[in-house]
Each structure stands twice: as structure tokens, then as C-alpha cells.
Amino acid sequence: MNRLSRTLLLDVVAPLAVFYGLRAAGASPLAALVAGAVLPLAGAARDLAARRRPDGVRLFVLAVMASTVAASLITGSPRALLVRSAVLMAALGVFLLLTRRSFLYTAAHTVLPPDKQRIWQDNWDRHPPFRRVLSLLGTVWAAGCLLDAAIRLTLALTLPVDSVPALDAALLVVTLILLMLIQRTFGRAYLNRHGLRLRGVVLEPYPQDRPSTPPPLARTGTPPPARTGTPPPARPRPDSAGPRP
């Protein structure tokens, strides 16, 4: 199981299963939400402890998880825990907005094997349109995350508690699919307009379409072909001196 699958299982599927399983067993919404938050909280703490130098992103995620659980327990309101996903998505959107120029490049460079990393870096160094399109797409991802966060906050504060966790997961899927479609469509069209095409990780010149009709022949100095057939008889030439006597 790869890292993405483990993350989805631990942070999305398992909390949903715990929450709705406990609700079906008669637990209160607050107890079910707290129990569902334990798994991603424990996973974040384990990842943080496994690193010699904890990074700021993991510390922030862990702090948000812990604070929302504590707020829910103190206030007795499950909605304080429901806004956790909105806070995390908004923070991700702000982070992407601040690092839009290099985020997508760095994210792809991190997961590529070493041989493809060199190709990816060469694309970044040699082709300004490649750098510009990644910056534009970083802005698109930031805007998408901020819009997603606003929708999550509205859902958490207005809808029944039991429906919010499932809608949160569905919204995550929809947001990712839409952003990836926009990235693929817009990114490919932008590169094509600048004469480039991305095949895998290799950026190469985009083949231009050949004209459908042949170009007109250039004029040359060749004279037109001579006419064929019998030439007309020559007129008799008048003799100005006249016949001799």
C-alpha cells in the first residue's frame, strides 16, 4: 500500500467508519466524532515523532486536530470538531497562494524517481512557459482550496451533524477531481499555445499542423512554351524600286 492510500484510509475512510459505526450503536455525535478523530490524530503524531526535524506543516496539522478536539470537549459542541477540515483546507489554500510559483514543481519533483527528477528540473530551467503555467495552476489550486474551505465551513455550521462527515468526504473527492481536470486541460492548452507538449515528464516541441493546400508555385524567369502548328504565310515585301524595264 502506497503513501497516498494509507493517508486516505487513515484520514478519510477510518474516521467515517468509526463515526457512523458508533452512531449506529447509539453513541452521541460528540463521542463518535472524538473517537473518529483519534486515528488521524495518532497518525499525525506518529509521523511527527518519526522525523528528526519536525516540519511546520505537520506541526500545524497536529495542532489543529488537537485544538478542535479540545474545543469540542470543553464546549460540548460537536460543531467545533466539524470545522477542523475547513480550517485545514483554508490553511492549505493560503499556503498554496504563497508558494504558487514552485509548489506544483516541488510536489512533482518529490515523488518522481531520480532520472525523471533531472528531466523535470531541466524543463523548469529551460522553458519559461513551463514555469509560468505551473505558477498559474498553483493559483488555481489555491483558489479551489479556499472555496472548498468556505463550503465546508457552511456545511459544518448549518447542516445536521450526522450528515456533515459524509459530505466532507464527498466534497474532497469532487474538489480533487475538478482541480485535476482543470490542471490537465488548461496546462496542456497553455503549453500547446507556446509550442510545447508534455509527454510524461518530457517537454518537447509541439508539432505544428501542416497546411491542407500546397502553397502557390513561385514565379520563375522561364519563358512560356512556344506555340505549335503551321505558322501563317509571310506577306510579300513591297519593292520600292519597282520592276526593272
Rank of each mutant, 00 (worst) to 15 (best):
E204T: 14
A24M: 05
L104H: 05
L39T: 05
R152C: 03
R237G: 10
G21T: 03
D162A: 14
P236V: 04
M65E: 10
R6K: 07
P236W: 00
N123K: 13
L30R: 04
R244G: 08
L157N: 06
P245M: 07
P129E: 03
F186Y: 15
G36T: 02
R126Y: 05
V69C: 13
Y206L: 00
R100Y: 08
A49L: 12
R58P: 04
T230G: 12
P231W: 07
A86S: 15
V61Q: 06
D47I: 01
V18T: 13
G56F: 02
A37T: 01
L62K: 07
Y190R: 06
G195H: 02
P15Y: 02
T158R: 10
P216N: 11
A80I: 01
R46I: 10
V64Y: 09
R131V: 05
P224F: 03
T230M: 11
M1K: 04
S72D: 01
R244V: 10
V57T: 12
Y20C: 03
S67I: 01
R79V: 03
L16G: 06
E204H: 00
L155D: 07
V64L: 08
L112D: 06
L8Q: 02
H127P: 00
Q208W: 00
A80Y: 12
R219K: 11
D11H: 10
P238W: 09
T220D: 15
A143S: 09
Y190L: 05
P231H: 03
S72Y: 03
I151Q: 11
P40Q: 08
V64Q: 05
P207R: 10
A150R: 04
S67A: 15
A17Y: 02
A107V: 11
P223A: 06
A170M: 13
L136V: 07
P205R: 02
D11E: 14
V173H: 03
P211R: 09
F186Q: 08
A80D: 08
A107H: 06
A27E: 09
L146T: 06
A49C: 04
R197S: 14
P128T: 09
P231I: 01
V61Y: 07
W120I: 07
T185I: 12
G138R: 04
L157P: 00
L203M: 09
R132I: 06
R118S: 09
A149R: 06
L88I: 14
A42Y: 01
P114S: 09
T110L: 14
T228H: 05
S135G: 13
L191V: 03
V140P: 00
M89Q: 14
T222R: 14
T175L: 08
L112T: 05
T175K: 03
R210K: 12
V140G: 10
P214N: 00
P231G: 12
V13A: 15
L196F: 11
